[in-house]
């Protein structure tokens, strides 16, 4: 995994796949996301951190076309988030914090459904489904209803489904909630594999140990980005032992109540 950090840090000027410029989202008088700007490079694992209510989910929704920006600009995979959300939708993958798969569909039916929605050709689907199931060790579960899978398996499957159509970027909204540490560790291996294949990973989390796995992290406090760098540099900058300490030094500034 260290290879990855090396390449993005030393940087061969990789292309930028997400570029955000003064993005703001207001709900009435409440500013959920306050003038944020950042870039994400291709193949990078970009951690988007913040306490509950800091605005990270709202920001991610604007980037994935689920929500309109109040002001500011954003380019995702070369498309404008304000005007080209339809094109963006085709080039990204998305995994929600509920690992939203259909419980009453079988494993292969879920894969088939989402692959079909993203326009993967039928032949491809059949081939890639076999390969995927083998890789996950799920061959026997092909015809199992998703509802009878353990949570960790559902999570793996949801992630595999989200990147099945080989998106440029995959957005993961708190992908490890409620999963035990071993399964989380396991899951991050999958994230690295995707990143190695050139898929950019944009992940929100509030587990600070997970922040250490990211190439770069941004920390949001009260709608603003208070810090953005590699975990190593952040620890130096804030004179902290680990990311947890970095986070607490920043989060102390928060005046906003968690929802």
């Amino acid at each position: 995994m260290n290879n990855n950090i090396q390449t993005s840090e030393q940087g061969l000027k990789p292309d930028i796949v997400i570029s955000v410029d003064n993005l703001t989202k207001r709900f009435g008088s409440f500013t959920a996301v306050d003038n944020i700007s950042f870039d994400v490079k291709k193949g990078e694992i970009f951690g988007f951190l913040g306490a509950n209510g800091a605005g990270k989910t709202t920001a991610m929704r604007m980037l994935s076309g689920l929500s309109y920006a109040t002001s500011g600009k954003g380019i995702v995979a070369g498309f404008d988030i304000n005007t080209q959300s339809e094109q963006i939708k085709k080039t990204i993958g998305y995994m929600s914090q509920k690992f939203a798969l259909y419980d009453d569909l079988k494993v292969w039916e879920n894969i088939r459904l989402f692959a079909g929605i993203y326009g993967v050709p039928d032949k491809e689907i059949t081939l890639r489904t076999d390969a995927l199931l083998k890789q996950l060790g799920f061959e026997k579960e092909r015809d199992t209803l998703v509802q009878s899978l353990p949570l960790g398996w559902k999570q793996k499957l949801a992630f595999s489904v989200a990147i099945f159509h080989e998106p440029t970027i995959v957005f993961l909204d708190e992908p490890t909630g409620g999963v035990d540490p071993a399964a989380r560790r396991n899951f991050w291996e999958m994230i690295y594999q995707a990143s190695d294949r050139g898929i950019t990973v944009f992940v929100t989390t509030h587990y600070m140990d997970e922040a250490e796995y990211c190439n770069r992290v941004s920390i949001m406090v009260d709608g603003k980005i208070e810090a953005l760098d590699s975990p190593k540099n952040l620890k130096i900058q804030f004179n902290a032992k680990n990311m947890d300490e970095v986070f607490h030094k920043l989060a102390r500034k928060s005046t906003r109540k968690a929802d």
């Binding site: 990204i92 419980d103 929605i117």
Partner: peptide, 11 residues
């Protein structure tokens, strides 16, 4: 279930 969100992000 949250699947609507996934559908809305899809094309």
């Amino acid at each position: 279930l949250g699947t609507m969100e996934v559908l809305l992000v899809s094309p």
